Simulated assay, not measured.
Amino acid sequence: MKPGDVCLAVTVAVIWGLAFVASRIALDEFSPPLMTALRFCVAALPCLLVPRPKVSWPVLIAISLTLFLGQFLAQAYGIAHGVPVGLSSVIVQSQALFTITFAAIVFRELPTPLQGVGIGIAVVGLLMICGTVGYDFSAGAFAVIAISPICFAIGNLLLRRAGGAPMFDLFAWLCLVAAIPLLALALLLDGPQATWQALRHMSLTGLACILALGGISTSIAYWLWGRLLRDNPAAQVVPFALLVPFVGSAASSVVFGERFGRLRLAGMITVVGGIAVMLLAKRRQAPSKPVLPGVT
């Protein structure tokens, strides 16, 4: 990779890591469905300028409901109900584990021995994290946020159905498809009056977080990541996603004063280590279809 592309890859990873912090701050003002809806409303604005990609509506809807709506709504609910921001970034990153597993089940793409080792390491790390559930957040909150990497993995596989659609156009329309049901869900669960009051009394901090999540973390960062994957071998780009949980954990420690016990910290490091082994295994095989990183 060129030095400029390396800087871009690191920048994208930092943006995605900091997005977990922005989400936590925004959730002080907005309910999970409303915050997620506003995020995608901002990210869908390019639809005013770009045409719908040549992808059928059923495929577009299926990708959007998993890769975006399911993934980010589960993240928002988990964080809103006490799952630490740094831990959330690690759990979402575990989507690589589920993507490889689902690909083996559905497409018979059996993992290599080294990938199998990585899966085993990541599972051990997740079990270590499970051992800390109940101390500062509930098992229910953990179960909800665990839906996020599963939806992410399913969306990764469905994304193959989009063919060679332009990345920027595709993601803009995926955001639009996700925003509509999320707005309806916010109105249904929160009520029209509460939704209007939240929008009316939005602070500058809340607005800045929504604009950052929608405009920077979703639209710009995904576009840059797509460009990097287009111009460089996937095996050189995808490992930079491993920076996301480290940035998210470090930022949450600084901003929110989060501290991790020995078992949880060991589990988080073990999960990231397992994912690193999986990515290194893919790097040796240089596949043509990378998985997207676990981001928010």
Rank of each mutant, 00 (worst) to 15 (best):
N232Y: 13
Q95W: 02
L110S: 09
L48P: 05
S56G: 12
D136N: 09
A194C: 08
A26K: 03
V277H: 11
A162H: 02
V247R: 03
R108K: 15
L213K: 13
R227C: 01
A96I: 15
G294N: 12
R108P: 05
Y222S: 14
P58M: 12
I150S: 02
I119H: 07
P46G: 05
I79N: 03
I79L: 10
I145L: 14
A250N: 04
V238R: 10
P51I: 11
G215A: 07
A184T: 11
W196M: 06
I147V: 15
M202T: 15
A26C: 04
P181L: 00
L18D: 04
R161P: 05
G248L: 11
A286H: 06
M278K: 02
T101G: 03
T66P: 00
F142N: 07
L224M: 15
V144T: 10
L242S: 11
L183G: 01
T296P: 00
G248M: 01
E109I: 04
L280D: 05
V83F: 04
Q115Y: 09
A198P: 03
L207T: 14
D190I: 09
L279I: 14
L45Q: 02
V177T: 01
R161K: 15
S217A: 15
P239L: 10
V133F: 12
A62H: 04
G70S: 08
S249E: 08
L49H: 04
L279A: 07
L279V: 02
P46K: 03
P32A: 06
S89Q: 15
A80T: 01
A122N: 09
A172L: 02
I129Q: 03
G261S: 13
Q71F: 10
Q71D: 04
A139K: 05
A96F: 14
A184H: 09
A62Q: 12
L60C: 02
P149F: 02
L176I: 00
I210W: 00
L49R: 11
L38P: 01
A250Q: 06
I79S: 05
P84F: 08
S89D: 11
E29W: 13
R161E: 14
L187C: 09
G116W: 10
R262T: 14
L211I: 07
C130T: 07
D136L: 00
I15W: 07
L224W: 11
I154L: 12
A198N: 08
V42D: 00
L159Q: 14
A266H: 02
T195N: 06
L176T: 00
W173N: 01
L38M: 13
T132I: 04
D28R: 15
L159H: 11
V106S: 07
V133N: 01
A153L: 09
T36M: 04
F68L: 05
S94D: 08
V144R: 06
A143Y: 06
R52K: 12
V238F: 06
F102I: 15
T112H: 06
N232M: 08
P181V: 00
V255S: 06
I61P: 01
S219K: 11
V277D: 05
F152L: 11
G274Y: 13
A13I: 11
G191E: 11
A76Q: 09
G86K: 08
W173M: 00
L110M: 11
I79E: 08
G267L: 07
L38S: 02
L280A: 12
L182C: 05
I220S: 08
A165S: 13
L207P: 01
L110P: 00
L127R: 05
G155M: 08
S94Q: 11
L87R: 07
S89R: 06
S56R: 14
